[in-house]
Simulated scan of single mutants.
Amino acid sequence: MADTGGDQTPASVGDLLPWAVRGIRAGRAWVVAADPEVLEERWRRLATADAAERAELFEPTRARTPDSAVAGLPGRRTSTWRLSRVPGVQPPLVRVRHRPLDRAWMLADRRLLDQARPELWRAESTRQRYLLLQPDGQPTPAPLTVAAELPVDPRVRVFPLHRRPDGREPNLAPGLLRFLRRAYATAVAPEDVPAWIAAVCAHADAPRDAVPLPRSAAVWAEGVALGRRVMDLHTFAHPGLRLPDGRRTFIRLPVDRQPQELAYDAEEETLVLGEGRLAPVAASAWAAEPTLREWFADRTAFRGAASGTLGALGLTAWPQRATKELIELTTTLALLAELAPRQRALAADGGPWFTRADLREAGVLPAPDSARRPASVLDRLEEGPEGQYALL
Rank of each mutant, 00 (worst) to 15 (best):
D102M: 09
P118V: 02
Q138G: 05
L132H: 10
P139L: 10
Q138N: 07
T140L: 08
R99V: 05
W105T: 03
A108N: 03
R111Y: 03
Q134S: 06
P141V: 06
W121D: 03
R95H: 02
R95W: 00
A116D: 01
R129L: 06
H98N: 06
D136I: 15
T140S: 07
A108E: 04
L101E: 10
A108H: 04
W105G: 03
R103P: 00
L131C: 08
R127E: 06
R110I: 05
Q134L: 10
R117L: 01
A104F: 10
Y130H: 12
T126C: 11
P100L: 15
E124K: 02
R103N: 13
P135C: 00
L112M: 06
E124L: 07
Q128S: 08
P141M: 02
Q134M: 11
R111I: 05
D109E: 10
L113T: 09
W121R: 01
R95M: 07
G137N: 09
E124G: 02
R110L: 09
Q128N: 04
A116W: 01
D109Q: 06
P118I: 01
D109R: 08
A104D: 11
L101R: 09
H98E: 14
L132A: 14
L131S: 09
Q128W: 05
E119I: 10
H98A: 05
L113N: 07
R97C: 12
P139D: 08
P139R: 13
E119L: 09
P100G: 12
Q128C: 10
P141N: 06
R111M: 05
D136C: 11
P141K: 04
L132K: 14
M106T: 04
L112R: 03
A142I: 12
G137S: 10
L107F: 00
Q138T: 14
R111F: 01
D114C: 08
D102H: 11
T126Q: 11
R99Y: 10
A108V: 04
M106A: 05
L131H: 10
D102L: 11
E119Y: 15
S125H: 11
L101G: 07
Q128H: 12
V94R: 01
G137V: 12
R103C: 10
L132N: 10
L120N: 07
A142M: 12
H98Y: 15
W105R: 00
V96I: 14
G137F: 14
S125K: 09
P118F: 03
E119V: 12
G137E: 02
A123K: 06
Y130Q: 12
P100Y: 00
L113C: 09
Y130S: 08
R103S: 12
D136V: 15
P135R: 14
R117Y: 13
A104M: 11
A104H: 07
P100E: 07
E124P: 04
P118Y: 06
R122C: 08
A142L: 11
D102F: 10
R122I: 05
H98W: 14
L113H: 08
P139Q: 15
V94H: 01
T140K: 09
V96P: 02
R127Y: 11
E119K: 14
L133F: 00
T140E: 11
Q115Y: 12
M106N: 01
R122N: 03
R117D: 00
V94P: 05
R103H: 06
T140R: 14
L120W: 11
A104T: 03
Q134F: 00
T126M: 14
R97Y: 02
A104L: 04
R110S: 13
R95T: 06
Q134I: 13
R111E: 06
Y130C: 08
R99Q: 15
